[in-house]
Design a protein around this nucleic acid. Sequence first.
DNA 1: CGAATCTATGTAAACGTTTTCAGTAACCGT
DNA 2: ACGGTTACTGAAAACGTTTACATAGATTCG
Lengths: 355, 355
Amino acid sequence: MSVTIKDVARTARVSVATVSRVLNGKGPVLETTRARIQSTVESLGYVPHGAARSLITRRTNTIGVLLPDIYGEFFSELIRGIDAAVRRVGFHLLVSSSHGERGETGAVFRAMRGRVDGLIVLSPDLSVPVLRASIPESIPVVLVNSPSDATSPFDLINIDNYNGAFTMVRHLHSLGHQRIAFVRGPSPNVDAAERLRGYREALRALGIAPFDDVEFPGNFREDGGYGAGQRIANMSSGAPTAIFAANDAMAIGCLAALRDAGRSVPEDFALAGFDDIPIGIFTAPPLTSVHVSIAELGGSAADRVLHGIRLENAHKRMHLTLPTTLVVRESCGSAPTPRENRDPSNGINGRRRDA
Amino acid sequence: MSVTIKDVARTARVSVATVSRVLNGKGPVLETTRARIQSTVESLGYVPHGAARSLITRRTNTIGVLLPDIYGEFFSELIRGIDAAVRRVGFHLLVSSSHGERGETGAVFRAMRGRVDGLIVLSPDLSVPVLRASIPESIPVVLVNSPSDATSPFDLINIDNYNGAFTMVRHLHSLGHQRIAFVRGPSPNVDAAERLRGYREALRALGIAPFDDVEFPGNFREDGGYGAGQRIANMSSGAPTAIFAANDAMAIGCLAALRDAGRSVPEDFALAGFDDIPIGIFTAPPLTSVHVSIAELGGSAADRVLHGIRLENAHKRMHLTLPTTLVVRESCGSAPTPRENRDPSNGINGRRRDA
DNA sequence: CGAATCTATGTAAACGTTTTCAGTAACCGT
DNA sequence: ACGGTTACTGAAAACGTTTACATAGATTCG
């Protein structure tokens, strides 16, 4: 069927070794023969067989990405970041989404073995021992947004959820809010847990006693935020003056609930989210949030795993934490920033301060 | 390094052929030896080398997905749909995003050759001849949301943009609107073009003379919709009573612009979008839109390419068009539907009618 | 000027599988 | 008892590359 290196060699009247040499630019080869081979390659439309190459070089030039069931923009942004970094060095991306639930995690890993040179694993829900048991240690692995464990044999890259949340609470407090509610993320999720921790610690640091009844369960989705918003709107006593949702999707749901209940933002409640999704500029009012650069997160993870591959997995393991940025818009009543055109390339919107 | 089939064979005191047989469940093998081999495989932690396997079977068990630069939820939904379908038969996904711009399209295809058994290509911007020139015909290829060409040697799956838009216009007209503005998508995009065509044809069919000045340029992003909304809010004469944006992101931007200009929806303008993104339920007011099941689109594409692989690319080429559904919410003032909890698994929100 | 180094090429062994072919032993029907 | 299946297993040839080694001529060097 397809044309092999032998066909090229025969047509160009050289040995396969020489063809291989010009293909990989290795070893000396006469300029005239190089040109001859080059042209036969093109005229024959020859493309090297990846599998054969991988077999002998023990390199697939592919890195695997394992994702849980992710909805929304996070997914696309992350892949965009990874793909850009990886493409620069001629690597490919083997993606497997929804490795969540059932014990199929191990199966997925097994299926990836021998197909990838490195792995990026996103598993905010999986516990360390589970990961440890099912991830092969023979290739470089970077864990993204995963439970931090000092003894982890893997590289680790996380978003600075803790400081992001802490900063947001401090910001709300600086605007005069004393009673700040929190809409939590899904409970096994490590991002959710860290944001909650930042919220609680900030309250403590500010000398505000934390009351359990100003925390509301959530699920990172709009409907979860809507439910919390309904409950808050109906509170008769001890109602908060500010609401901090663990992500923007819930903040938007919350906003809808408050509006439906006839309450307004920021007049009746200050409202803030987390993630700074693009649509946050266009809500009414525009949403104060914590900016996270997902694409950058993906890019760093990719760079890290590529580095590990280059050093044949003998590199020093690192734990990286990507900073977040406070983005102040109108939903907290503090900064009547005009709605600006959005530049998606750098994501700079609203007024930003270092977190 | 890694343990090979030979190690297994030696340890289990059989030939590699026998090991291979139990691994693939082919050919007869004594129950006792099967068990012995099975257990050695596990104790040695043996995993077959994918490349070696591909080399001889000429199968990679992988399908490639080529995407342009896509933002937002579309990407994740599509991949989710494809991945689910593909995983069912034990296939993998090689993803390459942003094969847009420069002439690197050919390079991407070349890099994929030999690594995948089939291809799903999403290229709403690429012209047919370009695609034709750079896509290999040796493996099954499914074009998604691509320019339709009756003579295309590839399978084709599209969303029924035309009828979706047509139906929406008819709906707006049935509510009494005579002057319906349209916010266009980016011009080379085939989805944008089809939606525009549906809009124009519907106007014609309804006997409404189309005026050029009720069409506004857009880009499928929020800011584009915002710009259009500003212009509409400032129109002194001949202002439309209804606005139909070519996608939800622009509708939301438009909504923000109108609100900023002190105009309200649906009182001053009826507003409708296209895509039915989840957040549309939580805007104020909830957004009337055209529902498209992206995950289903991805699933169909995957099934189609898998079918092609099974038949070794000798299958009959098909052109599929996935139906859309009108989802009526409050942004057009017609249906004061209560905000409902959203079930993300089937995406049924609001009131739906067949398109 | 012989030895050593370099340049350009070819030969052939590996990489880890699957699969064809062949072989042995047991069984079946006549 | 014997040819013909059948059940099981092994030997070895592929698959398409890369690369260590070999070779042969040209150049350099002491």
